[in-house]
């Protein structure tokens, strides 16, 4: 299985080398419109709008970019979209109220946060079979699989914890207390750090996966902006992991953090209530979805400047990008 997917990955890589640099495809989930807007990264024009089940939020691509998974919270289902035909080809019975998902690096298993049931559903991607359900804290949201696939982390918004699941046994091995309403979890590429954003607490906690202890908390400060509006939600590493982008919701800004120093180096003004973003091909642009202004801001990663705004559907939530 692994060698197969490795072969597939190699084939995809070869294909990418063979074909001259072409535009990437940007997918944005529109929570209020029950659609996914598809945008061409070159022209920044919408090329398609895909209907989904109700309340699409979490949006992730399979590692081979062939399938796009959209968690429809009110539809109690995950829509699987074929990225070639841009149609919903199948659905996964995720259990109630799926919000965010993570896929293991091999692309075989999907980990789903069931917000309403305080569960993490572990599912075989191909068959849609539920392999296990792990009870975690109240209102799980953020999901992350470690680069070595050993651990899966779920954050629970009401319990304020990052719950660590051992992927070999599907059992909880650690519960790390962070600040209020943790939203997203991300491992660094080397797997040596786990970053967790706390929306209402207004901090990002950096956790050492050796001890599962918080080693550093990063907070935010913008003159003239109320502290309670500086709410980190999404997190995306850029420039080979040297910086991290974190959209700060109601402050209408994206924070840029130096990951070595763990300090904020910049704040970029974007649209209203940005929650999640994604890096474009070769990590040159960062696309962030602004929930209240119904658009996506394009940020240049080198200059850290907001360049453009692209209109999408209503209440855009998350972004996924296929190179």
């Amino acid at each position: 299985m692994t060698s197969n997917s490795l072969a597939a990955a190699c084939a995809t890589a070869l294909l990418l080398i063979a074909v001259p640099a072409s535009a990437a495809t940007i997918y944005v989930s529109n929570e209020k419109d029950n659609t996914v807007t598809v945008i061409d990264s070159e022209t920044l024009k919408p090329i398609n709008t895909i209907k989904t089940a109700r309340r699409p939020r979490g949006i992730v691509l399979s590692p081979d970019f062939k399938e796009l998974f959209v968690a429809a919270g009110d539809g109690d289902i995950i829509d699987v979209i074929d990225t070639e035909t841009m149609e919903v080809t199948r659905t996964l019975e995720s259990g109630p109220d799926p919000e965010l998902m993570a896929i293991d690096p091999a692309g075989e298993i999907i980990y789903i946060a069931n917000e309403d049931d305080s569960l993490v559903t572990i599912m075989d991607i191909k068959s849609g079979d539920v392999l296990a359900q792990v009870p975690v804290g109240v209102e799980p949201e953020g999901m992350a699989v470690s680069p070595d696939s050993k651990y899966t982390v779920a954050t629970s918004e009401s319990t304020s914890m990052a719950h660590v699941i051992d992927n070999a046994t599907n059992k909880l091995i650690a519960n790390v207390l962070v600040d209020s309403r943790p939203r997203e979890a991300k491992f660094t590429a080397d797997g040596k750090e786990l970053w967790v954003s706390s929306e209402v607490g207004g901090t990002i906690s950096v956790i050492d996966p050796k001890t599962w202890k918080v080693i550093k908390k990063i907070s935010f400060e913008v003159p003239g902006v109320r502290p309670e509006q500086l709410q980190p939600v999404g997190m995306d590493f850029a420039r080979d992991g040297k910086i991290l982008f974190s959209p700060l919701g109601p402050s209408n800004r994206v924070a840029v953090i130096d990951t070595a120093k763990k300090e904020v180096i910049d704040y970029i003004l974007v649209g209203q209530r940005p929650w999640h973003g994604e890096l474009g091909p070769e990590g040159k642009k960062y696309y962030v979805a602004n929930g209240l202004t119904n658009d996506v801001t394009v940020i240049d990663v080198d200059s850290l400047k907001a360049e453009k705004s692209v209109p999408v559907g209503r209440l855009p939530w998350g972004v996924a990008i296929k190179p």
Binding site: D179, R181, P250
Partner: peptide, 10 residues
Amino acid sequence: FKLEAFKGQA
């Protein structure tokens, strides 16, 4: 003390 209670702020 920053309590999360579904109000979008502490």
